[in-house]
């Protein structure tokens, strides 16, 4: 049983998964993009600029979800010191940061035609920037703290403090008056987004999750190779 979790076994599985995702990713991306950019209707109010949503919303979800995963892994890690979980948390961080930045940048681009401004220091946008900063600190501790156990402890604590920011991002639009509109898709209750636009949104989300998984697996693979090559820090 525990043999399965041995690094070389994981390595083989990562290889297989990467190949599998690679084989379906581009086809799915084309399908999702054509639904998002061509087949889905424009919005009654915003017209075609609503199409930015199909990248913006999934990117923000992934940014938030990745950090939540990192934070929970960090909690387990801090208490039980499981080597593999450290590697996983470390490997998720870059792609999470990327998607958080994508969400901020696309949001800014979307803000200009709809709100009339690129930037507003409202609660949602500010808390999203803080999330990106937490990602950055998490990654930098691993880069600059050379002693590994220390780096793990510090980065775990950063992720755990950052976890508090996640509900703030999520509920910022309900707790405070913000320029950003409230959530359209609710976990319970009906969504205020029409199904013809919800479908491409979920499709894009699925494709971007696949991309996220792909980058994560590649990074994870690199970390395992590094251990195999006796802690070679840079290639």
């Amino acid at each position: 049983m525990f043999n399965f979790f041995h690094n070389s076994n994981i390595f083989i599985w990562i290889e297989k998964l990467i190949n599998f995702i690679n084989s379906i990713f581009f086809v799915l991306l084309l399908v999702a993009l054509s639904f998002a950019l061509i087949f889905s209707p424009p919005d009654y109010l915003q017209g075609d600029s609503v199409r930015i949503m199909y990248v913006h919303v999934p990117a923000a979800w992934i940014g938030l979800a990745s950090f939540t995963v990192i934070a929970f892994l960090s909690i387990i890690n801090f208490i039980f010191k499981i080597k593999n979980l450290t590697l996983i948390a470390k490997s998720i961080a870059p792609i999470g940061l990327l998607f958080t930045c994508v969400a901020i940048v696309t949001g800014s681009i979307w803000g200009q035609p709809t709100w009339g401004t690129f930037w507003a220091w409202d609660a949602r946008i500010t808390s999203m920037v803080i999330l990106a900063i937490f990602y950055l600190f998490f990654i930098l501790t691993h880069k600059y703290l050379l002693e590994e156990s220390k780096a793990n402890n510090v980065s775990s604590l950063i992720a755990i403090v950052g976890l508090i920011n996640i509900p703030i991002v999520k509920y910022s639009v309900e707790w405070w008056a913000t320029l950003h509109q409230p959530a359209s898709i609710k976990i319970s209750g009906t969504s205020s987004i029409h199904s013809s636009m919800l479908m491409p949104l979920l499709l894009m989300f699925f494709v971007l999750i696949l991309y996220c998984a792909l980058i994560f697996l590649m990074k994870y693979k690199t970390e395992i190779i590094r251990i195999k090559k006796k802690n070679l820090k840079r290639i």
């Binding site: 919005d43 009654y44 609503v50 320029l179 409230p182 959530a183 029409h194």
Partner: peptide, 17 residues
């Protein structure tokens, strides 16, 4: 001296509207 539009969370195609 500046006006920003705040839009709501409803998205739908124009025909439906």
């Amino acid at each position: 001296d500046r006006i920003l539009a705040k839009h709501d969370e409803n998205y739908m195609p124009p025909e439906l509207k």
